[in-house]
Design a binder for these strands. Structure first.
Length: 606
DNA sequence: CGTACACCTG
DNA sequence: CAGGTGTACG
């Protein structure tokens, strides 16, 4: 139906850069140790000895890699710092002045200066005591995390489990390849299939499933070949050491800030950005080839991710998080996150939250449900704060963006939108389990545009056909603007306009052919064909009440086209320009509700 | 040179 | 809807 090829909203964009590398093991680039063997094929039952030996070797190498990686000096690899760091974008905003060029006569749509940032000042209440308590919890969690990782490793050391793991990986590949897999479905499927669970969910996450394995894994350490034993001991040591170092480092770095500005401490945590995107792609909505599923084994990725997270945590480049785009070399670290794995964790909800922050994973599936020991949580459609609803989006602590301001979602305002479902309280806070102070510190800024943003943009088109980038920034507060994001949004509106003008012109010509004489009769009403076409495009679900003003604009556009064509102006190559100019002045203000960060989310649901 | 835009194309 | 291209600015 649509004039463009349907079926691929390609919402993200920012970095086509990371696509290639997805297919190979992230660990390889990030870590220095070479891997002795390529991922071994499934061992045949027969030559078990040899194979398991190789297996061990490989594993050992990987473990060493992990360790190596962890010890690596916090290399600056968090996404790029190349010239185009996010910081520069604000420069664009000076352009508030409408450019009255010929090309695009812009309407001086004065932005209510009120739109000025209202910083959500973290309540001064964040006392040190509180912060301390939180830190303690975090540390505790980290420890658990570490233990988990160790156990996981031992588990993998066990040949049986190794095969198991691989199998899981393969399954995962299939899952990845399956288009149209929606989050809900994925998590549901995962829940029903142990193997998938094994892969998709954070290791320990499936606390229910894995708990036994953990013990088993730990117990098996004794039965391991001496070689492996040594290895395990070494690993334990290293891990322990690394953890304490990291913890110390983090604390040292963060504590000062913490005292004055509690949320700040997340600033030093890098964000791996690929996860979300992969999620989105996985949903089958992108026409670009899905990023190749991970070809490395679980251990490797665990190591990579872990190392990255850790090193990143102690490195505290304020810019480290700002990698809107490209920078291939540095990207790898991020790519690690694109693999669907999650580090295991046994800790309850709050910790999941933390980890997600640490690793920057876009969480899909539902940690919440598993951490609650209730697999049905996700299925029964009572989304945990972090799950499905937020699943496809890239999460990030807005604190990391000094420019952005934490803005509590406003269900109230969302509700006032003429949208179908009422705002869900659930999406208001990311984390219920978390103690108040901490949860207050977590706000999420998406780094990529999502389908919900698209939808929102379309609705906004009813009000503005020529939004300035400034305006866009004002209305898409929940996205981290980068050059790419901005361009993409601009492009969207450009596409909207294109469609709009094409439609109007079509109907104008049609009217002409039908012998319409009086321009005045050309009115776009809610039941006119033209309106239907437009509404279908920008408001598919018809869940938004199109403002009357838009009808007027459409009418005027129609009339303009009509007269122009009738006057034979369409011979002039640029005969539309005058029309564009006129229309560009008809933008109206966009309702404040669209500023609500919850708005996008709500839109997605309808 | 970078941005924004229209136009064309897939 | 995204890419690509050519144009028109500042």
């Amino acid at each position: 139906m649509d004039w463009w090829q349907q079926g691929c909203s390609h919402v993200t964009e920012e970095c086509s850069v990371c696509q290639g590398p997805h297919s190979h093991a992230p660990g390889d680039e990030a870590l220095t140790l070479p891997r002795p063997c390529a991922p071994t094929p499934m061992p045949c039952a027969s030559d078990g000895d040899q194979l398991s030996n190789e297996h061990l070797q490989a594993k050992r190498a990987r473990v060493e890699s992990i360790i190596q990686g962890m010890n690596l000096p916090l290399n600056p690899l968090t996404c790029d710092t190349s010239g185009e760091r996010g910081g520069g974008y604000d420069m664009e905003r000076g352009r508030e002045t409408p450019r009255e060029n010929k090309r695009k006569p812009r309407v001086p749509r004065q932005q209510q200066s009120d739109g000025e940032v209202r910083r959500a000042v973290p309540s001064a209440c964040s006392s040190q005591a509180q912060g301390c308590q939180q830190l303690k919890e975090q540390l505790h969690f980290l420890e658990q995390q570490l233990r988990q990782l160790q156990e996981k490793f031992f588990q993998v050391c066990n040949p049986g489990d190794a095969a198991h793991a691989q199998e899981g990986t393969e399954k995962a590949h299939l899952l990845h390849g399956k288009p149209g897999g929606r989050l809900g479905k994925d998590s549901a499927t995962a829940a029903s299939d142990p193997l998938k669970v094994h892969f998709w969910r954070s290791v320990p996450e499936a606390a229910g499933h894995e708990a036994p394995e953990e013990e088993e894994g730990a117990g098996d350490a004794g039965s391991l070949p001496s070689e492996a034993r040594v290895l395990s001991e070494t690993l334990k040591h290293e891990l322990a050491g690394v953890t304490s170092r990291v913890v110390d480092s983090v604390l040292k770095t963060v504590w000062p800030k913490l005292a004055s500005h509690l949320p700040q401490w997340h600033c030093s945590l890098p964000v791996l950005r690929e996860g979300a995107r992969r999620e989105y792609f996985a949903s089958g909505k992108c026409r670009k080839p899905l990023p190749k599923p991970p070809h490395q084994d679980v251990l490797n990725s665990l190591g990579g991710a872990q190392a990255e997270a850790l090193s990143g945590a102690s490195e505290k480049s304020p810019d480290s998080h700002t990698c809107p785009i490209s920078s291939r070399g540095v990207r790898k670290a991020c790519q690690v996150a694109s693999i669907g794995y999650r580090l295991g964790m046994t800790a309850p909800g709050q910790d999941n939250q933390l980890l997600s922050q640490l690793l920057g994973y876009g969480q899909h599936g539902s940690w919440g449900s598993s951490s609650h020991g209730s697999p049905s949580a996700a299925e029964r459609g009572s989304p945990e704060p972090l799950d499905l609803h937020w699943g496809t989006i890239k999460l990030r602590s807005s604190v990391m963006r000094q420019q952005q301001y934490p803005r509590p979602l406003s269900p109230a305002s969302v509700g006032s939108l003429v949208l179908l479902p009422a705002a869900r309280a659930g999406c208001r806070e990311p984390q219920p389990m978390m103690d108040g102070a901490l949860s207050l510190t977590l706000r999420y800024i998406q780094e990529a545009l999502t389908p919900s943003h698209l939808k929102k943009a379309k609705l906004m088109f009813f009000f503005t056909r020529y939004p300035s980038s400034t305006l866009l920034k004002t209305y898409f507060l929940d996205v981290q603007f980068s050059r790419c994001i901005t361009s993409q949004l601009i492009k969207w509106f450009s596409n909207f306009r294109e469609f709009y003008y094409i439609q109007v012109e079509k109907f104008a010509r049609q009217a002409l052919l039908e012998g319409v004489a009086d321009t005045k009769v050309l009115r776009v009403s809610r039941d006119s064909e033209l309106f239907r076409a437009l509404n279908m495009h920008y408001n598919k679900g018809n869940d938004f009440e199109v403002p009357a003003r838009f009808l007027e604009v459409a009418s005027l556009t129609l009339q303009e086209f009509f007269s122009a064509v009738r006057a034979g102006k369409d011979c002039d190559p640029s005969w539309k320009k005058p029309i564009y100019k006129i229309i560009s002045k008809l933008d109206s203000d966009i309702p404040e509700v669209f500023k609500s960060s919850g708005c996008s989310q709500e839109l997605l649901r309808s």
